[in-house]
Design a protein around this nucleic acid. Structure first.
Length: 830
DNA sequence: ACTGACTTTAGT
DNA sequence: CTAAAGTCAGTA
């Protein structure tokens, strides 16, 4: 029998299935999904591998019989299994296979998603002295003798790593090996990054213990006596606690165990990621609309060919309640659920609500967990201790055995597309899972993405709507303020007079206000009024943002920071000034305009510290502030009952972003931010400041007319052949050497042209570029891009050729020091 | 990419 | 002629 495995190595060159023979002793044991140990490479280095397929014979398709094929390879044997049970379920490996093809990445990158590195295989080389080395000692040179002595001091065996401090050690060892003094071997350890706690308890009850002691004439020391007395009072105690409390040694506890007085029980210990979420538990009766939607989904849960659902519910319509109702039903039917949220740290409220409703069976999974913590969560899922997992996109890969429901909240969010390999879209993966395993998929949003809505209209999803708020209040009225007029009336402030008046009034009435601006820092950029010089990052092609507190200019891409000089470095004038508006400036001006107002600011600068987000939100909830100023972060999921006013400072900022999704983003952000107002008993209102009052994204948002916005937007997408009408693939070529990057971009283009020509494709208008990226330099790396649309070319052929050029023939096409990043349907093409 | 094997060069 | 440095190809 043979196994096809994926080997763990961090290169693209070994991204194939490798065939190994299954030794007889493992034939009945090895299964698909097992982690095994295989010898790899010329040195037969022991490495970790994952069993993908098991076959009775091998090479039947390709004619690779051992005898007559000239391309035959020598087959090695699997050395051993690394875990008793297979690590992966077969459907997980199918998913890996699908993702690899879909997102043009390696097997290992996909495996890393379903396998947080809690188990590790460490391999290392050792030098072993041969038994008869003393006889050959005379033939050794001085440095060789030194090494021999060193090894013998180390009981005749040493990790080569530990000799690295000696110069030329590899050559010395090589010579010693030739002289027959040492052996060089590979060894490994298989470590589990799992913690167990050892609990100690008495084997017999109190009286029987004393009887046992006297019967067996056991002599007990003072310390041990203490331990026994302690255990009589405490049924069970963790071993480290006993050591701590009684100031005894582990040895004394062990000796009690050896003499049969106490028992040890090992229990899995899970690193508990701190969970400080406000507790607020109120079971809410679903209203009619909510119930209707939930019932449809619940009734179809066991139907074979149901479609995924898009739940289009206005802000404040209580989608979370619907989700919970569905999850509860699934649970009652023995099915597990995954709930995805955009960025877990931003929605502690949602997490808290779900935890309060379902208790201990709720797990949390997100990218800020350490690898060990992730491993623990997956382990608990596997054991069935977690039945409901709430988390960011990677929570999708949790090893549930009977997954019934996947819910994706705010599915329009960009963060569902991974920026790292595998650059997967959580929506696509969830859809794949729902088709493959008949999972109920519910994707909810107040502002569905144009792409998915288009698919829904084409019947790929079942569209469900909730158009009333749960509090049966109307959506907050949005008032548009034309900032051009304000300027005409002589108001140069960033606040319109209407907004300031409303904030004052709202504060006086003890209500709270949220102000939204999509830019952190104090000012957009620092520029010289005299010569037009703009301060730029030294590592990136980005103008620096002004931060007032440190009087410095910062790069929001790489973190570069520089003091703002007194004089302009170009012309020497002292007219260097910050321009534009950021959240810091809003805070400052607001405090200036309304003395005594209490303001909280929430952006990447104030939430960098762990737990800071929760702190700020908690303060705001406790009404320690009148106004919350924030960026994107405050647009999602926040639910404060006293917020009755929302101000959107500058809606144009996002509108003018050079990306085909910028209108959609603007519409979504306005709708979402506006939705923060008036969520409880009080009605809310929204002030929207803009220079662009006539833009359809703003007009439609103002009227809460999603359909109208969609109709406008989809026409534009169609005209310009953007998604959903085409798939786009972006390949970014980057590196520190500007000329080399350009050269490589062109050499990639030429390879592509050659390959397409070979297939009779002459018209290459579906390839855009190569061009420098819109942000032409990030972190010292120059960036060029080639864009593809699958227009006039079959997507799989396109992918196949990109993969061939960028991965298979990578070292032929590209120079060293060049990075390639491939993204299928990227969020942005900057 | 890494590693072992093979090739060339430098040094006595 | 040997040791060290450089080059190359395969990974089952």
């Amino acid at each position: 029998m043979y196994a096809e495995v994926i080997v763990r190595s961090n290169t693209v060159y070994t991204d194939n299935l490798f065939t190994y023979k299954i030794p007889e002793f493992l034939e009945d044991i090895v299964r698909i999904g097992h982690r095994v140990l295989v010898p790899f490479g010329k040195g037969n280095k022991p490495i970790e591998a994952f069993v993908f397929k098991i076959k009775n014979n091998f090479g039947d398709e390709k004619g690779l019989e051992e005898e007559n094929s000239d391309k035959k390879f020598k087959i090695k044997e699997i050395e051993d299994i690394l875990d008793e049970e297979p690590l992966f379920l077969p459907e997980q490996l199918e998913l890996v296979h699908w993702m690899k093809n879909r997102y043009i990445c390696t097997y290992m990158e996909c495996i890393n998603m379903i396998y947080p590195k809690g188990l590790k295989l460490k391999n290392y080389k050792v030098a072993v002295l041969k038994n008869d080395y003393l006889e050959k000692l005379d033939s050794l040179s001085d440095d060789e003798k030194k090494v021999a002595v060193k090894i013998s001091e180390n009981k005749g065996k040493i990790k080569v790593e530990k000799l690295k401090y000696l110069e030329n050690i590899n050559n010395i060892l090589h010579r010693m090996k030739n002289k027959g003094v040492v052996d060089i071997k590979w060894e490994y350890t298989n470590t589990k990054n799992e913690k167990n706690m050892c609990f100690v308890s008495l084997r017999y009850d109190e009286d029987d213990t004393e009887e046992y002691i006297s019967e067996n004439k056991i002599r007990i020391g003072n310390k041990q006596r203490e331990i026994i007395e302690f255990l009589k009072l405490n049924e069970e105690a963790e071993i480290n606690d006993i050591v701590e409390i009684l100031k005894v040694s582990k040895q004394s506890i062990n000796s009690l165990k050896d003499r049969g007085l106490v028992d040890f029980t090992m229990k899995a210990y899970y690193r508990k990621p701190e969970s400080r979420y406000g507790a607020e538990s109120k079971k809410i009766e679903l209203n009619e609309q909510q119930k209707e939607v939930a019932d449809i989904i619940k009734n179809e849960m066991f139907e074979e060919d149901k479609k995924p659902y898009i739940l289009h519910g206005v802000t404040g319509s209580g989608k979370t309640e619907v989700y919970m109702d569905i999850v509860e039903y699934a649970l009652s039917q023995g099915l597990d659920s995954i709930i995805l949220v955009p960025e877990i740290s931003l929605t502690p409220q949602t997490v808290a609500r779900i935890k309060n409703r379902f208790g201990d069976i709720v797990g949390v999974f997100h990218s800020q967990l350490s690898e060990g913590e992730k491993h623990d969560v997956f382990r608990a899922v596997k054991k069935g201790e977690i039945r409901i997992l709430i988390g960011a996109r990677s929570a999708l890969f949790a090893p549930f055995r009977s997954l019934g429901v996947v819910i994706i909240d705010e599915f329009h969010e960009a963060s569902y597309k991974s920026e790292m390999n595998p650059k997967f879209s959580a929506l696509e993966v969830a859809r794949y899972m729902s088709f493959k395993n008949n999972v109920t998929l519910v994707m909810g949003s107040a502002t569905p993405s144009v792409e998915e809505y288009y698919k829904a209209k084409n019947g790929e999803y079942k569209l469900l709507k909730i158009d009333k708020r749960a509090n049966s209040k109307p959506l907050p009225k949005i008032e548009v303020v034309d900032m051009k007029e304000e300027l005409g009336m002589g108001n140069k402030s960033i606040f319109s007079s209407v907004l300031i008046d409303k904030i004052k009034k709202n504060t006086a009435e003890k209500n709270q206000t949220i102000l939204f601006l999509n830019r952190r820092g104090y000012a957009n950029f620092v520029s010289c009024r005299s010569c037009g010089y703009v301060m730029k990052c030294e590592n990136c092609d980005i103008s620096l943002t002004y931060h007032k507190r440190s009087n410095s200019a910062r790069c929001h891409y790489c973190g570069y920071e520089k003091q703002v000089p007194q004089e302009c470095p170009e012309c020497g004038s002292n007219y260097l000034r910050p321009f534009g508006t950021g959240t810091q400036r809003i805070e400052e001006e607001l405090k200036h305009l309304i003395p005594g107002i209490r303001v909280l600011r929430m952006d990447k600068d104030t939430t960098a510290r762990k737990g800071a987000t929760e702190e700020i939100l908690e303060k705001f909830r406790n009404k320690e502030a009148d106004v919350l100023i924030g960026t994107q972060m405050i647009s999602k999921g926040l639910d404060f009952s006293d917020v009755t006013l929302v101000g959107i400072i500058s809606a144009d900022m996002m509108l003018n972003f050079p990306d085909f999704k910028s209108f959609e983003t603007t519409f979504q952000l306005i709708t979402q931010v506006a939705g923060r107002a008036g969520r409880a008993d009080k009605e809310g209102e929204v002030i929207l400041q803009t220079y662009n009052t006539d833009h359809y994204a703003i007009r439609c948002a103002m009227e809460y007319d999603f359909e109208k916005f969609y109709e406008n937007e989809i026409k534009i997408r169609e005209t310009f052949e953007y998604p959903p009408f085409n798939n786009m693939i972006s390949v970014v070529i980057s590196g520190e050497n500007e000329k080399l990057v350009e050269k490589n971009a062109y050499s990639m283009y030429n390879s592509l042209r050659y390959l397409f020509k070979g297939r009779g494709i002459e018209d290459l208008s579906f390839i855009l570029g190569p061009n420098p990226c819109a942000i032409s330099r990030i972190n010292k790396n120059y960036r060029w891009q080639i864009l593809f649309k699958d227009d006039g070319v079959e997507i799989n052929l396109l992918k196949g050729i990109i993969k061939y050029v960028c991965i298979t023939k990578r070292d032929v096409v590209f120079d060293k020091g060049i990075n390639i990043s491939i993204s299928v349907n990227p969020n942005s093409v900057l």
